[in-house]
Amino acid sequence: MAKELLNRKDIERIISRIAHEIIEKNKGPEGICLVGIQRGGVHLAARIAEKIKTIESASVPVGSLDISLYRDDLSLRKDHPVVRKTDIPFDISGKKVVLIDDVLFTGRSIRAAMDALMDYGRPAVIQLAVLIDRGHRELPIRADYVGKNIPTAKKEKIDVQLQEDGFEDNVQLIKAKE
């Protein structure tokens, strides 16, 4: 059973708000770069960058990060996922890096993402923006920018579909089967 949490318009408003919050918190777009976590975060990062451009007429660099090689559950997984592109075509040392992901859950992906980032340089700060925070953290990690807090049961699933992947933008909560 699925329940719609966010529609296209909701997502658009969230992107717009987060873009504003990022600029506000960092007192302007200078020194900011966005790094989206594969896969959903990459599309969101591009959209936020686009929004910042219209608000501030400044373009911030955007990169993508694959965290497969830094996961802490690799030795537990039967099937290793294909390693997708990490493309950070700029130096992150001394920069304000905003990590962007679609769903924040246990926090383990973010831990892996921070480890991966450190292999590319030493950012001045790392901040975190997520579309959905569904709770159930297993590590002491919190997001700086949250699209929507959704209380979930651990067995439920959050499905984020974006038009870049050929869907109508929407976020659904998939109920656990009894």
Binding site: L69, Y70, L74, V83, D119
Partner: peptide, 24 residues
């Protein structure tokens, strides 16, 4: 081959090591 293509990027970094098979 797809994963290998991503590893080619890792080989171009300053830090060419990833922790994927740590402990093996």
């Amino acid at each position: 081959l797809d994963t290998a293509a991503s590893f080619k990027d890792v080989l171009k970094r300053d830090i060419k090591k990833v922790p994927a098979l740590r402990g093996k």
